[in-house]
Design a protein around this nucleic acid. Structure first.
Length: 530
RNA sequence: GGGCCGGUAGCUCAACGGUAGAGCAAAUGACUCUUAAUCAUUAGGUUGAGGGUUCGAAUCCCUCCCGGCUCACCA
């Protein structure tokens, strides 16, 4: 059974799926794995007939800890401040930094993926006082929190330490304060210049109520508090958090022992590596989500994430043949789902995989499976030949007019193929007509092939073929006249015009060029000596 | 040092106790019409290493090797 269906069949009653994201730094493509996974779980629950909600929280009370996207003069002032209070970059209409980056960039990638969770902002939960009961519990039971840290993660906290981060009343930073002395209504705090390496506190000291949005819980407690407040029953996390003694273990223990709530079901998922390396937000490496999204339409992106089990690392190297193959595999699964015979093995539960790759919540699986999908690599090739009418060609391949769905699939793929040719396509997928000079590769041609080129030039002058079809016919006719196998004939043409052994449908290629140039090149190549 | 996940054909992966498989790549061949297509054929593996359990192990157990991540701060 598909893993998400298996999970859905093992629970009962109303389910609340939650996922969250800290909006610091860039959003890279790996961040989307969690989103897509949670969406699949949500859909699996609904399909199993369960009542379910899908929440997505933005941790915008977190301190700004990435200066990559701040202007130099803003670094000193805002590093360490809550993301909800850092201004949005110049030119943005968003209310603050968090809303700019998550709202303008990340959320924009949700909609196209067909993912529609209920969004909430953690700063709103605090400001509305909804987190207050958990803040109080955490402070009242600070000794338990400390002992959990020690027992679960072997982290020893000073006995005066409190599980709360106050926003400094003077400088507005949250990452730099250290709080002590909870008296039931206020805590004492100091804004430390050197508490953390990435931000500098102002030195202010005071007492303040930690309620109503003036302070936040540390990460592990905040996570557990959200579970309790929102009644979360299922929440996966990346394997960096899921390790023994790691964040998840700590939050689970806090949830049970401090807030006395059973933590949600976990689904630990692996990373997406690009070229063998982890995508890192803080180091700014790795493709941003929207960059990959240009080359991979939503269904293929979902497919990429949903095909392996969550525990499997995804090695995604957008160079080379990876992207065309992803399309091909998707098309094969689509064909199999439609009941057509396909070559090779199929993943178990391929129909489920296909359905979850489609945009939700209730896609028309049958129509999608039956839709005609032009091969990606072939489209990329056609796009590079001037004068080719793509839809006409694709319609001819299908042998019937495209329906509306197929036309939108085609448009999507044409855009993706264009983007791919500009970014990731390897040299050998790029087509360059060697206009300047006869390619060196013609030296490897045999005498029979040279004779063929000369004969074709002569025939072309007589026949004046004006279309791809006419050229294609002539190519075959001349080959058969001099009894040259068509494979050798085509090889000669590709060498003469592209400097390579193979290429796109030759008739169309020649038809796209001026006939004078074609004839001249055929003669020149025929005469080239070895 | 502890933990988690992984190591199967050149590459990406499947099989998860019952004769090691597929896709792509490669090689060969076919083709008067999608010649980067399609079709046919071939080659490619002591399943990281070594032990154990079993009638039988890629699969279960132990040890080791290699890779990624993680366990201190922060999230």
């Amino acid at each position: 059974m598909y893993w998400a269906d298996e999970l859905a069949s093992s629970v009962s009653g109303r389910q609340v799926v939650n996922d969250s994201k800290s909006p610091s730094g860039t959003v890279h493509i790996g961040s989307l794995r969690g989103v897509v996974l949670h969406d699949a779980i949500y859909r699996a629950l609904r399909q199993a007939g369960l009542e379910a909600a899908f929440l997505y929280g933005v941790d915008d009370m977190d301190a700004m800890d990435s200066q990559a996207l701040l202007t130099p003069d803003a670094v000193e002032r805002y590093m360490g401040a809550p993301l909800s209070r850092v201004p949005a970059p110049e030119g943005s209409s968003a209310a603050n930094y968090a809303r700019h980056f998550v709202g303008q960039i990340f959320f924009r990638t949700f909609e196209p993926l067909g993912i529609k969770p209920e969004f909430y902002w953690v700063s709103d939960l605090y400001a509305a006082g909804r987190m207050d009961p958990y803040v109080k519990l955490a402070l009242d039971r600070a000794d338990r929190v400390r002992s959990i840290y020690l027992r679960v993660s072997h982290v020893e906290r000073n006995s005066s330490w409190l599980p709360i981060q106050v926003i400094c009343e003077q400088c507005g930073k949250i990452g730099t304060t250290y709080a002590t002395e909870w008296d039931g209504s206020t805590v004492a705090y100091r804004c430390m210049p050197d508490l953390v390496s990435w931000a500098r506190g102002c030195g202010h000291e005071g007492r303040v109520s930690p309620l109503g949005g003036r302070a936040k819980l540390p990460w592990n407690l905040e996570w557990a508090a959200k579970w309790g407040l929102l009644g979360v029953t299922i929440e996966g996390c990346g394997k960096d958090l899921a390790t023994a003694g790691g964040s998840r273990d700590r939050s689970d223990a806090v949830s049970r022992e401090v807030f006395e709530v059973e933590p949600p079901r976990n689904v630990a998922y692996e990373f997406l590596n690009i070229g063998g390396r982890k995508m890192s937000t803080s180091k700014g490496q790795g493709a941003a989500a929207h960059t990959i999204a240009e080359v991979l339409p939503p269904e293929q992106l979902r497919f990429l994430f949903l095909r392996p089990r969550p525990s499997q690392v995804i090695e995604f190297d957008p160079d080379g043949e990876t992207i065309p193959r992803l399309f091909d595999e998707f098309d094969r699964i689509a064909a199999a789902t439609a009941g057509r015979e396909v070559k090779g093995e199929l993943p178990t539960d391929y129909e489920r995989l296909f359905a979850y790759s489609l945009l939700g919540p209730t896609p028309d699986v049958e129509a999608q499976a039956n839709a005609f999908r032009p091969a990606f690599a072939h489209l990329a090739l056609l796009l590079q030949i001037p004068g080719v009418e793509i839809e006409e060609r694709v319609t001819a391949e299908k042998g019937a007019p495209l329906n509306e769905l197929e036309r939108s699939v085609l448009a999507e793929r044409v855009a993706a193929a264009r983007a791919w040719l500009e970014s990731y396509a390897p040299e050998r997928a790029r087509l360059v007509i060697r206009r300047d000079a006869v390619p060196d590769e013609v030296r490897d041609l045999g005498d029979d092939q040279r004779a063929y080129l000369a004969a074709l030039a002569t025939a072309a002058e007589t026949d004046k073929p004006g279309s791809g079809d006419a050229w294609q016919g002539l190519i075959f006719r001349v080959a058969s006249e001099i009894e040259l196998p068509s494979g050798r004939a085509f090889g000669a043409l590709y060498a003469a015009f592209l400097g390579r052994a193979n290429g796109p449908r030759a008739g169309w290629l020649l038809a796209s060029l001026e006939s004078a140039f074609v004839v001249e090149r055929l003669r020149a190549a025929a005469l080239a000596t070895a």
